[in-house]
């Protein structure tokens, strides 16, 4: 609501870099997020996700490049009035009740939602009158979610929203994001869970070492990511060129142990048998996020 007929992007990053002393946390990110998108920023710890969100919400200034929120500098009050933010590292007073602080944050925004609605979205209705100091880690995380949505903003920035949440809370969070997306809100969140990004977002931006290494829909991304890790042992040395023409990445072979990633484990194994490889201790497992990154970055190197 309130976004009018404009087609201006919600978030715009143009060749943005961010340096902390000698460390370059963001090394040239260009990104455009439009109204109504649900975007997951996926990456391992230290990839530059939190810094990217900090830049988008104006808590950090870029070392070079330009950042715009609704076409304005992110520190502009008009832009901030349309953004709800949940940070990974922030605190709040322990002596107010959950309802009191949600109502207070609502006052900062031009058209907030009723505190009860924000508490319901966050699944905190039964903790409305509890002092914040008595909340568990997961409940506190839900409170920060309530604080992010209570102003009824057009865009939500959520940095690692599901950290410290149990399975139940995580499921409720995914449902809440779907609800908000259904209302046309833009949602940008960071995570290092591939599955969470896949379930929640319609677009996944993969960040590694400060650059975007993939930007695609979950389906496209899963197709590009090698989904299985294959490992086995061989008795003797591998014949040379045995992997010739096979769809494998991140191949490692040493001391008789062979590991690689592939989307077609059956076809690859059939080919290996046909080429006379005597393999033992075969393991085929779903690739984890680390594997997914490995295959994405390898693919990037090859291109």
């Amino acid at each position: 609501m309130g976004s009018g007929t404009d087609t201006e992007p919600v978030v715009e990053l143009e060749a943005v870099t961010k340096r902390y002393g000698a460390v370059e946390a963001v090394r040239g990110i260009t990104l455009r997020i439009d109204a109504g998108e649900v975007v997951a920023m996926l990456g391992p710890n230290g990839a530059g996700k939190t810094t990217s969100v900090g830049l988008m919400v104006g808590l950090r200034a870029p070392s070079s490049g330009a950042v715009r929120l609704f076409g304005l500098p992110p520190t502009d009050r008009r832009a901030r009035s349309r953004a709800g933010v949940m940070l990974q590292e922030s605190g709040t007073t322990g002596v107010l009740t959950t309802r009191e602080i949600v109502a207070l944050f609502g006052h900062y925004y031009p058209a907030p939602m009723p505190p009860e609605q924000a508490l319901a979205l966050a699944g905190l209705t039964d903790k409305a009158d509890a002092r914040i100091g008595t909340l568990s880690g997961g409940q506190r995380q839900r409170l920060y979610f309530a604080l992010a949505v209570c102003g009824n903003p057009d865009v939500l920035f959520l940095d690692e929203p599901t950290v410290a949440m149990d399975v139940e809370a995580r499921r409720a969070f995914v449902a809440s994001v779907h609800t908000l997306a259904g209302q046309g809100k833009t949602v940008v969140f960071t995570t290092h869970y591939l599955r969470e990004a896949e379930e929640t977002a319609r677009r996944i931006v993969v960040i590694d070492r400060g650059v975007v290494i993939a930007d695609a829909s979950p389906r496209e991304l899963m197709a590009r990511v090698a989904a299985k890790r294959v490992a086995f042992s061989v008795a003797g040395a591998l014949p040379g060129g045995v992997f010739e023409g096979l769809a494998v990445t991140a191949l490692e072979a040493s001391n008789g142990h062979v590991r690689f990633l592939t989307n077609e484990p059956e076809a690859v194994l059939r080919a290996l048998f046909a080429r006379g490889v005597e393999l033992r201790d075969l393991e085929v497992a779903g690739a984890d996020l680390e594997d997914a990154f490995l295959s994405l970055t390898r693919r990037g190197d090859a291109a």
Binding site: R77, S90, G91, T92, Y108, L147
Partner: peptide, 14 residues
């Protein structure tokens, strides 16, 4: 110390 200021800074509160 408790980083209460951090979250407030990201809101429109002047």
């Amino acid at each position: 110390g408790q980083k209460i200021d951090l979250l407030l800074r990201a809101t429109p509160l002047p």
